[in-house]
Simulated scan of single mutants.
Amino acid sequence: MDRGRTRIAEDYHHDLQMLRSFLVAANASDLKRRSHGTRWTNEQLLFHMVFGYMVVRALLPLVHVLVRCPPSARSAFCRLLNAGTALSHPVNYLGSCAAAAVYNHRRMAFKLQRTIAALEAWLAAETTASLQRRTDFPDRWDPFFTPAMSVEQIYAYPSRHFAFHARQLALPAQ
């Protein structure tokens, strides 16, 4: 694997280890405590961090279609997604609240492990050319999305998202 892929895979495994350590160190009251700078509890925020990986796993097949579309189609689709930003934020918040009840502290590490395994298998199968393909992206949806992103940047996104939110957790020091 080239350095970019290796780094992405290393970051994935680092995040999985961090999630496991957060979950081992946290008790029930820690998980119910409000996180710093969000409306989520720590447990909901931990799920949201896992959800960033789940989103990329669901998104990559669409991205592979989009990168092959004409620029006008990519741009139109991106504008449509950006137009829905006002709806995406409440859905993101409420979805993470609800989903944390299913993928709670007992299940989220296993879910992340499985999601990472799938992403790593896909990443290993990518060609250098496919990783460099770019598409327009809905940059209003997330601070780590840019107006145009490569497939490689999309693979790297969940770890950036994870690290950002890890700083917002109100959990005991590791």
Rank of each mutant, 00 (worst) to 15 (best):
Tyr157Trp: 15
Arg114His: 12
Ile116Leu: 07
Glu120Ser: 07
Glu126Met: 11
Leu112Gly: 01
Leu119Gly: 02
Arg106Ser: 09
Glu152Asn: 07
Asp139Lys: 09
Leu123Thr: 07
His105Lys: 05
Pro143Tyr: 09
Leu112His: 00
Tyr103Asp: 03
Phe145Lys: 01
Leu131Asn: 04
Leu131His: 09
Ile154Lys: 00
Ala118Met: 12
Arg106Leu: 11
Arg107Thr: 05
Trp122Pro: 01
Arg107Tyr: 15
Leu131Phe: 06
Gln153Thr: 05
Lys111Leu: 15
Ala109Gly: 08
Lys111Thr: 08
Thr127Ala: 07
Ala118Trp: 09
Ala129Val: 11
Phe145Val: 02
Leu112Lys: 02
Ala117Asp: 11
Ala156Met: 08
Ala121Asp: 07
Thr146Ala: 13
Val102Leu: 15
Ala125Trp: 11
Asn104Arg: 09
Ile154Asp: 00
Thr146Glu: 13
Phe137Trp: 08
Phe145Gln: 02
Met149Ile: 06
Thr127Cys: 07
Ala125Phe: 11
Leu119Glu: 03
Tyr157Val: 05
Ala148Thr: 13
Ala121Gly: 11
His105Cys: 11
Trp141Gln: 04
Trp141Val: 02
Lys111Ala: 13
Gln153Ser: 11
Asp136Thr: 06
Thr146Cys: 12
Gln113Ala: 06
Thr135Ser: 10
Ser150Asn: 08
Ala121Arg: 14
Thr146Gly: 10
Phe137Thr: 04
Phe137Tyr: 10
Arg134Gln: 14
Val102Lys: 08
Thr146Asp: 05
Leu119Tyr: 02
Phe137Gly: 03
Lys111Gly: 02
Gln153Met: 07
Asn104Asp: 11
Arg107Ser: 08
Gln153Pro: 03
Met149Asp: 02
Ala100Asn: 01
Leu123Glu: 02
Gln113Glu: 14
Tyr155Cys: 02
Leu131Tyr: 07
Val151Glu: 00
Trp141Tyr: 04
Ala109Leu: 06
Gln113Asn: 12
Ala101Asn: 14
Ala118Arg: 08
Thr115Ile: 06
Arg134Glu: 12
Ile154Leu: 15
Ser130Thr: 15
